[in-house]
């Protein structure tokens, strides 16, 4: 599950103007023709760096995202929910595996990516820095966070980098089942007992603002968006994905008789765009940089898992084997 991410931060890479102009022109022409770029093809340094960052952030978001939902597997009410949630969270970890492999084709090993996650150097979807207090929070994530991820990922599956694009196609198929599961859970809560309904409404109130942050800062705040879009690293801007999601899901939330905690939220029929209260982007930056309600806890869990599992990884390394970067 991954949204707009923090492409607003500057990245260290060679300026495209310093690249070989002939190679760069050929590269851009290929993308223009809709061809996919493959791991052994020439690519500008900035393209590689941006993709590593994006795929890596996406992979991290999958494993960190498994944590708030994972804690509800052992509490899920009844067999059907328990089995479905297990399968869903397992899918998310599977997505991480797929994505780390895709990122490895660009030259960064999985171990290095996980080290950067734990040290805080590399980021993940901000939304997972918020706690899932109740079963309804878990339902919100399965339905609406996954829906947001689908909007973003369906777009990016049309991107120019072959391994990422192919991974996303598979991921989106699985995510569409998650969304159905989440929607089913939310419908049951929204149409259930007064206590269930209250639980669902409170979850929406809690998650609305993090959800608006999910798609990333508004386009006017994002750096490099133009180059990223020209190179088809990003297909839709953050604002476009946010609008698409609002358009698809706000009516569905209202249909269930639930409310959304933003009294400015409405669709402007003239422009066809949704209007809303701008979320607090200072909070977004603060949380993404480590000062959110759950950042420390999430990373501590990941760190502990890495440390506790080190002896296993060490023991399975064959002494004489030569390990190479996998190609997707």
């Amino acid at each position: 599950m991954y949204g707009g991410g923090n492409t607003f931060e500057k990245i260290k890479a060679k300026d495209p103007n310093e690249e070989d102009p002939i190679l760069l022109a050929e590269f851009e022409a290929r993308i223009e023709r809709g061809e996919k770029i493959e791991p052994t093809d020439w690519m500008p340094d900035l393209y590689r760096a941006q993709l590593i960052r994006m795929i890596e952030q996406h992979a991290h978001s999958e494993i960190i995202g498994a944590l708030p939902e994972g804690t509800w597997i052992t509490r899920a009410p009844g067999f059907k929910r328990k089995l479905a949630l297990m399968a869903k969270v397992q899918d998310e970890v599977g997505h991480a595996q797929l994505l780390y492999s895709a990122a490895e084709t660009l030259g960064k090993p999985r171990e290095a990516m996980i080290d950067d996650l734990i040290s805080g150097k590399s980021k993940y979807s901000n939304i997972f820095n918020y706690p899932a207090f109740t079963w309804a929070d878990s339902a919100f994530i399965s339905w609406l966070v996954d829906a947001g991820a689908i909007v973003n990922q369906v777009a990016n599956s049309r991107g120019s980098y072959g391994p990422y694009s192919r991974a996303l196609e598979r991921i989106c198929i699985e995510e569409s089942f998650h969304l159905k599961f989440g929607h089913h859970c939310v419908i049951h809560l929204a149409t259930g007992t007064p206590a269930q309904r209250k639980m669902m409404q409170e979850a929406i109130n809690r998650w609305w603002h993090p959800m608006m942050h999910f798609f990333g800062p508004p386009d006017k705040m994002s750096v490099h968006t133009d180059t990223l879009m020209k190179w088809k690293v990003k297909i839709l801007t953050n604002d476009e994905t946010r609008q698409q999601w609002l358009d698809m899901y706000v009516p569905k939330v209202w249909e269930l008789g639930l409310t959304i905690p933003d009294n400015k939220l409405r669709k402007n029929e003239e422009t066809g765009k949704w209007e809303y209260t701008e979320p607090d982007w200072e909070e977004f930056k603060r949380v993404i940089n480590g000062d959110g309600p759950c950042n420390k806890e999430r990373l501590a869990v990941r760190k502990t898992a890495e440390e506790r599992g080190r002896w296993v990884r060490k023991a399975i390394l064959a002494k004489d084997a030569h390990y190479v970067t996998p190609l997707a």
């Binding site: 994972g70 297990m86 399968a87 969270v89 397992q90 502990t304 898992a305 002896w311």
Partner: peptide, 23 residues
Amino acid sequence: EWIGQGPLLEEDIAFASMAQDKV
């Protein structure tokens, strides 16, 4: 309970899969 906690992603997935079979 191993989901998200395994020594490597592949084992998270394996334990999750076996957990589903068992439940």
